[in-house]
Design a protein around this nucleic acid. Structure first.
Lengths: 129, 129
DNA sequence: CAGCTAATTAACCATTTGGTAAAACATCGA
DNA sequence: TCGATGTTTTACCAAATGGTTAATTAGCTG
């Protein structure tokens, strides 16, 4: 049973988890393009690209228009906002410029009692995260 | 043939594309925890959680220690930095506060000639992105 | 209409994924 | 040493993914 995760964030992250699809987004950041234009740099068949586009579309990351027999694709970056916001919750753990780190950890320590379990002391001691 | 994408960014995004794994990261943001502690909120067996932890570990998002028979897991947010930086390339497309949008698009227009293909004019006209 | 180009759909295949149950491994404590 | 506790490994399964080729749909143009 691998029923695909259907929540928005999962669908977006899954769409980003492929270099071909990220390259497609990079291409579309320069402006709309047709399927053939999008497919041109890749060593794969058109149907394969078409599938990637469908994944991106389901994630809301592209939209598709109609002009004669062309279906121009356009970047729709809005879903990246939620993904980026999710990541921001963790920025404190990697970005040293966030000196709110100590305050953040203190707040956690205050609100969660003596500890988080039997696994030992949390990282509250220093900034070596 | 679905040879899993092996580049770092793909592995990280794939790891994030599952609500269980994101919940595990959220838990670890409060401090290290043992496998049983991590598994407690979820309606799945321990081996399933163990697999999720392995995915997170391969992505570099957690590390695991040893204390007697416990294997405490610790959040390692560093890989999120690259993911976040990747997203920042697109921030201009969704964040209205980025009024650099126009400058950005002008730069693109200047460097790529008359257009990006037969699919029509790019979004260069306005801020309705 | 016939024929061309653009793109999708259909059928198929191998691999990966997310889950299970059961067995094995690892370590502490009596 | 024996048992209890914590975690991983080993099959195994169903569904999803990423790709292929061949056929089909959609729309322009001679």
């Amino acid at each position: 049973m691998a029923p695909v995760a259907t929540d928005q964030l999962s669908v977006v992250f899954a769409a980003l988890a492929d270099p071909t699809r990220r390259a497609i987004l990079a291409r579309l950041a320069e402006g709309p393009a047709t399927v053939n234009e999008i497919a041109e740099p890749f060593a794969m068949t058109l149907p394969a690209v078409s599938k990637h586009l469908k994944v991106l579309e389901r994630a809301g990351l592209i939209s598709r228009g109609r002009q004669a027999q062309w279906r121009p694709c356009t970047l729709e970056a809005e879903p990246l906002r939620a993904a980026s916001e999710w990541m921001n919750h963790y920025r404190v753990f990697w970005d040293r410029r966030f000196d709110r780190l100590d305050a953040h950890l203190e707040k956690l320590a205050r609100s969660s009692g003596t500890g988080t379990g039997s696994a030992g002391p949390a990282r509250a001691g220093g900034s070596g995260v």
